[in-house]
Structures are given as C-alpha cells and as structure tokens.
Amino acid sequence: MTVIEFNDVTKTYGRRTVLDKMNFSIRQGVLTGIIGRNGVGKSTLMKIAVGHIQATSGDVRVFSVNPFNSLKVSANSILVDDAMSFSDKLTLKDILQEAGRFYPNWDGPLAQRLFDYFGFHSNARQVDLSKGKKSTFNAIIGLASHCPVTIFDEPTTGMDTVARKDFYRALLKDYIAHPRTILVSSHHLEEVEDLLEDILLIHNKTALFHGPATDLQEMFVNLIGKEEKISTFIADREIISSQINGSYSEILVKNTFTSDEKSHLHTQGIQLVPVSADDAYVALTTGKKGGIDHVFNGTTAD
C-alpha cells in the first residue's frame, strides 16, 4: 500500500525552482533514505509531505489525502528537524507529557528510558540545550511518537559520534519493534545506507534514483588491475571515473558484466570491487568528470 505519493510536484520560492515535477511513491512500512547534496530540496520535500508547506503545483497524497491543512495527516505524522521548537515556558518533562497527550501511539516508557539514557534533566528547557542535545531530544520525540509516518530531517546534526550511533541503532530497533513508514534525510549516505531499505536520491530538482539500497550498491563496480589489461575490457564501456596509481588503474564502470566476463576478468588478475551506495551516489551525481586526479593533471573533463 502506498502511503506517500508525489505526482508532478513542483515547488518554487520566488523565481527559484526547488523541486521540478517530482514523482515518487513510498510504500507503507518502508524505511527510506532521502539523499542529496546540500540545498537540493530534501527539507522542502519533507515539509510538503507532512503539510507544513504547500506545493506550488502537482498532486501530493499522504494517506490518500492532500496533507496541506489536513488534520488526518497532522495527527498521524511527525517531522523532526532543527526547526522543531517548543515553548520555553515548558520544561523537557512537560514537553514529553504534552507529546503523550497529542500523539495517540506515544510510547511513554520508551521516551523516559531514552531521556534518562542520554542524561537529560527533567527541569531543563529546550532553548538551553546545546545543538547536539537539542537534536537528541527532538529525535526522542520523533521515535516515541510512533507515528505511522515518521520523518527525520538531518536528525543527527550536532550529535557526537556516540550519540549518532546510538540514535541510528535506536531507530532501527524501534522500527523493527514497531514497523512504520519512516523517511530519514542525510547527506552522509555512508552513515545510514545499511539501515535503509530504499533510497530516494534527489538531484537536479528531481528523483534521480528510487529503489532498494542494495540496487544502488550493485549499480557500479570498481575494476582494479594493470592498466594495459583493463583497457581491453573497458573499450566500449562508459567510464564513470578513473584513478591511476603507478601501473595499477582503478576504473569505475556500470556493473553489467556477465558471470563469464567476470571470471575472465578474474583470470586476468583484475579485481572487481563492489562500490558502496555512497560512492555510487557520488558517481551518479557528478557524472563523467574524470575524478579529482584530472584536476591536478591540468586536463579538462567534458
């Protein structure tokens, strides 16, 4: 069942187009990563999905209704981002209590255990928290709300390494215990790729890739071996990037080798090294540029 659907969705701010006729749909219960470089419109997409802002044109459906001004969507979704702020009249404990009154699936015991684990004080106020601590507190609200649509926009901003690892592990455990539709945005794909079932890659104002994270991980392959041996294999292939270390070359190409070709490559002493989703993402979004080495060699890429 589809929970979130974007059909030809465009969003412009003044003259600047952020999303251009974007199409995608998210199935119920899938943990999806929204990936893209800074400023590609990840946050805009997320705000539209929960109805905080309205698309300029196109059709948005969440639980089959337009999320903008929808009480149904508002009660069943949460967006955790760094703009999430609460009245400074409320203590952290008050906020947890109020959240419990608002969200029907609120998991009070989980919220309290996370609150204690991360060392928060009941009487502190959100405005007084450091950047990382504020992110952690907001993330606790996002997790404990158990909303059918839970969206985290760059949830680990400012968190230290330990808190980031703890958060992603908590997210996964809670997702397994209470499966629901979750979107997480990040520009650090390597940090989240193992957690994700699907990846929605945004580039040039549109969805460049949407599918299983494992498909993205298998889209490209790095050939490593002697340059003269590799060159015969890649004559008619598109080279995404290349790096030359002494007599060895590393050539990134689309992973379309048959198993016969693969064993042939092996007998020629050429290694086929899988490429992480993160490297595939870089390859997809930078295109055929020849790699950083070409910059230093003074050659121009086309």
């Binding site: 899938v30 992603y168 592990r169 996964l172 193992d194 957690l195 994700l196 079932e197 299983p212 994270a213």
Partner: peptide, 8 residues
C-alpha cells in the same frame, strides 16, 4: 545483530 535493514 548487525544494525542493518531487515529487508537487506
């Protein structure tokens, strides 16, 4: 066990 997505 491995902190990976159940689908994977």
């Amino acid at each position: 066990l491995f902190t990976i997505n159940p689908a994977t």
